[in-house]
């Protein structure tokens, strides 16, 4: 497949990427695609089953929940929250984590020591506890969820990347760049970052999956977006009381979370493989 870029010429990345195009498409086009207003309550049509079950209504293809809201529309809108959190939380965690990782790995010495100690302290809190403490402190809300994820997960980036930066930093071409008059900033951005980028991208894909799960958990606990915004975790929470007579209300949003996380993970895994082989080819051939 010569027309595909290298990072996609891998079945795993391709599957992940295709799934994500659909999910992002659904999120972007939710207002167009959704047959109903996701918050519109239709008390006559409560707990309608999805189309493959007898007694369904063609106007609500995936059925309705206990308040008669259209599940398909809520899933589509829920994708918006999931994607927003995935993208912004990951960007934030990446920026913070990668910035500190490059500082620590490149300069070493006391900078590294200091950043290392901060990470140690951070990691001494279990991540779930830390995010709950943060959410209580920050209060509910979409941007606070994002902030909490950033504050919890930047250490993951920082730790993994820091050792990678240290490996690259020891290569002679980095010393050579300094000798040719490159400033520290230029050396990091032009010589080191390109080498750590594959790992960074892979970590980002995985982090997006994690962010989707964390958002689902927090909205399940009612700590994410308010009631007026549909989110997958919330849908799962709402479906709890009807789990026996309308299992699809629980299964469908869970499945949405699962597919999204799966897509991110398989993309990350595929990226890691193809970027790794590219590296082994250029660096060892």
């Amino acid at each position: 497949m010569p027309s595909l870029p290298l990072w996609l010429s891998n079945t795993r990345s391709l599957i992940g990427f295709t799934l994500l195009i659909f999910i992002v498409g659904a999120a972007l086009l939710a207002p167009v695609l959704a047959p109903h207003d996701p918050n519109e309550q239709d008390l006559i049509n409560m707990l309608l089953p999805p189309f493959w079950v007898e007694g369904s209504d063609a106007a609500f293809p995936l059925g309705t929940d206990s308040l008669g809201r259209d599940i398909l529309s809520r899933l589509l809108y829920g994708a918006r929250v999931a994607m927003t959190v995935a993208i912004f939380a990951t960007l934030g965690a990446t920026l913070l984590g990668a910035f500190l990782a490059h500082l620590a790995g490149y300069f070493g010495g006391w900078v590294d020591w200091l950043i290392g100690r901060i990470i140690d302290v951070w990691l001494s809190f279990p991540p779930v506890v830390l995010s709950l403490i943060l959410m209580v402190g920050l209060g509910a809300g979409l941007w606070n969820v994002i902030l909490a994820i950033v504050l919890v997960d930047w250490t993951r980036f920082c730790r993994v990347l820091r050792s990678e930066v240290m490996v690259v930093r020891r290569r002679d071409y980095v010393s050579a760049a300094r000798l040719l008059g490159f400033s520290h900033v230029r050396t990091i951005t032009r010589e080191i970052l390109p080498a750590t980028l594959p790992l960074l991208i892979t970590l980002m894909a995985l982090e997006m999956g994690i962010a989707v799960v964390v958002e689902a958990i927090l909205s399940f606990a009612g700590m994410s977006v308010g009631n007026e915004v549909p989110a997958w975790g919330q849908m799962i929470a709402d479906a709890r009381q009807d789990v026996y007579n309308a299992p699809s209300t629980l299964i469908l949003p869970s499945f949405a979370v699962f597919v999204t996380v799966f897509a991110f993970n398989i993309l990350g895994d595929g990226l890691r493989r193809s970027l790794d082989t590219r590296l082994t080819q250029t660096e060892r051939a």
Partner: peptide, 9 residues
């Protein structure tokens, strides 16, 4: 070591 001295990218 030319392997390490030349940026492969």
């Amino acid at each position: 070591d030319p392997q390490s001295a030349l940026n492969p990218r």
